[in-house]
Design a protein around this nucleic acid. Structure first.
Lengths: 188, 188
DNA sequence: CCAGTGATGAGACCTTGTCTCGTCACCATA
DNA sequence: TATGGTGACGAGACAAGGTCTCATCACTGG
């Protein structure tokens, strides 16, 4: 057996979420999280830049988005590409088996301003990544940012409805949210 | 004369901006800011919730926005109300005499992730306030959020162009940005 | 058997942010 | 004038976040 148990980062993430759910984010110490994962405080900061990052999830969503946009058929318009990105998120990230974890994560984030702040930064990073991927497809400039913003707006409402009641299909919710937003935007 | 010099909060804000410009945000200590303002560290935290808040500006913009929206003529549509909000910002907040301070502030924020994060939180608060004000006018629900988001998108591009070159009129830039965004949104 | 590598632990150290307590000018009222 | 309350501030202890350095020790390849 190895000297250290593997998946230290994953263990830290799970320990953190459990403690945050049980006793709240700010009543949980980094030392506590590390101890629960069988590690030291210094090791925590070797895996995460700061305490908030432990709920981040990394670049998974960004790469999912940009990958789906790049893989969309050449004839597809910006909104169809955005729909493909949301569908990819629904199939890879917001699946039935991750439902519980995603719900807990969202609740913890909503309950804490610091975490909400960090989530907004991640959201902005997603907007930037989406915008770049759309421009790569030849979408000109105010349309690219606008489509990216609409996509994240749709992601937000879809995620809210998905976590509100179990057993739904995220992709369908996202698609509906996106078309609703598009229709509303057209009548402004 | 009073026991303490007045405008402690304002003095702290100025001292902070000066130090941030000269030596950077994270190479500046709260104790340093307080000392420069002739105050103690504990007094700093009595005026600002945390170090980032010292560049915040409070609810000024939010009240400006909601006030202008509420004061817009009853017949005006959501986008016209949004234009009025941006015009109010141009007349009260982004004036020629505040130009230097605003530019410095934007540069410091852009140079630091922590401050950018806080700025995004403020932006979200503005979106929420705008959405509520629009709903108050009878704008139904996906249109209200969408208009609010468009408004802050326009604010962002207008602010970028305004700070890029001195001597321009913010309100005109904002109005142009908003109509451009509306036109693009209509063709999505 | 030995040197290099790499993830970790231990702990000193600085800063942010909270909290308590004491101080002292200002104010109102008698 | 005297007296007590109010409110802004200073001093400093304290917890936690976050950085940094150094030592440890299994694993690897020669």
């Amino acid at each position: 057996m190895a000297r250290w148990d593997p998946n230290a980062r994953e263990r830290l993430g799970r320990a953190a979420l459990e403690l945050f759910v049980r006793q709240g984010y700010d009543r949980t110490t980094v030392a506590e999280i590390a101890e629960r994962a069988g590690l030291a405080k210094s090791t925590f900061f070797r895996h995460f830049a700061d305490k908030r990052e432990v709920l981040s999830g990394g670049d998974v969503l960004a790469r999912l988005f940009t990958g789906a946009i790049a893989a969309a058929p050449p004839g597809a318009g910006p909104l169809e590409a955005a729909g493909a990105a949301l569908a990819a998120a629904g199939e890879q990230a917001f699946t039935a088996e991750r439902y519980g974890t995603v719900c807990e994560r969202q609740q913890v984030i909503a309950a804490n301003p610091e975490l909400t702040e960090r989530e907004l930064l991640k959201r902005e990073a997603l907007v930037t990544a989406l915008t770049a991927a759309l421009r790569e497809r030849g979408v000109p400039e105010p349309a690219a940012v606008l489509t990216a913003q609409l996509t994240l707006l749709a992601l937000g409402t879809a995620l809210a409805r998905w976590t509100a009641r179990p057993g739904q299909d995220f992709t369908a919710l996202a698609r509906e949210a996106l078309t609703t937003l598009r229709d509303t935007a057209a009548t402004l």
